[in-house]
Design a protein around this nucleic acid. Sequence first.
RNA 1: GUGGGUAUGGCGCAGUUGGUUAGCGCGCCAGAUUGUGGCUCUGGAGGCCGUGGGUUCGAAUCCCACUAUCCACCCCA
Length: 419
Amino acid sequence: MITQAPKGTKDIFGSEIPVWQNIESKMRELCKNYGIDEIRTPIFEHTELFLRSVGDTTDIVQKEMYTFNDKGNRSITLRPESTAGVARAYIEHGMHNNAQPTKLFYIAPTFRYENTQAGRQRQFHQFGVEMFGSYSAALDAEAISVAHELIKSLGIKSVELRINSLGNNESRAVYNKTLREFLGKNISSLCPECRERYEKNPLRVLDCKVEKCKTIIDGAPSVLDCLGEECKNHFEMLKKILTEMGIEYVVDPMIVRGLDYYTRTVFEFVTSTIGAQGTVCGGGRYDNLVEQCGGQSTGAVGFGLGMERLIMTLEAQNGKEEFKPFRHLYLGSIGETGFIKAQAITYNLRRKGIKAECDTVGRSVKAQMKYANKIGAMYSAIIGDDEAANNKISLKNMETGETNEISIDDIYEKLLEII
RNA sequence: GUGGGUAUGGCGCAGUUGGUUAGCGCGCCAGAUUGUGGCUCUGGAGGCCGUGGGUUCGAAUCCCACUAUCCACCCCA
């Protein structure tokens, strides 16, 4: 029990680390070019924040949050997404006083109490970008282009971009009314859940996977037909910019998203290569969120991208990437004098920036060489009484087997040349 | 929350119709004449066969429950 990680959590270590670090550094590099700064918000927030932002009728809030009372009897929730926390920080630190737009990114563990399956864990990691301070579709396009460029630069080909617009408050009200009228005619044929959705949030019905509902939905009016003039223009502008950028997309009026704060643009990057959970990245515009959380009315857009799903997609396409160990030296030893000297020389090499290892177990020379081979050392050397006395060691190239006698004093310069 | 598959040393797997000290491959550790790796050979360590009940003279092997895991529904990243 105690030797097993909790359900839905995973240790990331060993050969996975280089994969993660590689992707993370690409994210950081890309964000630098976009002027997006990193933000690290707390892993937990006041529960109230998520109720207000994500929406208390959503599945996330109703059944998927890790919520508990702390010892001061405050209701605390492990973040089920990061946008709310970032918006909170934006308000709390008066970031609207900065040059706008304010653009932020994060790579953060995120928690949802769900049943696990392929591409779904209880603790997972999101790379996300949030941009505040503009109502223009140009900001939507900029956000989308970050995710698109990241996916493209990793060489992923199987991911498709889908976009939709849910409209602003007015458009949404019109659509909800239209949709209710339409669904009302067929309400008795809908599944029980959809009947409930019909009352609370008819948009959700569009998402239903039940066959009966699907056939009804097929004839449903499209959100896009109910958009007001401004929302329509906004969506058209987004499409124009994306097209000009050369970013391919598909308009999918069925994209609804499970968080209540979205307005106008919503989008997903989807793949069919990693099982049923194919949404690698999802996001959209949320013009009401900052105000809802107690700030000024602020146009904003963002997305969350699942690290695990991104890696799965990458590996489904290319297999697991092999990262070679750094080129380095193994400095073996024999006898007490050599053993002690080896420790000190290794220490000094490391201080100077060279990767080096030595025996800290007390193994035989043979076993030390075996070890050197196993860890992929580029060069090896053994230091014993003779070497210590003559101040010389023979440096062995582990690939070719060639040896080279050098002075111990020159070891650093020599290694600098070849490693 | 629901449904199906799986659960044997670090990893991947065998374990015949229930029968004596549970095997194999890889990995790990050590040796093959005294101070040198990758190949080969030899030896060794490591498992209350997911947990708890039950059936039986006897269970890894049959039954039940629970837990975990995989996949799917739901929802989302």
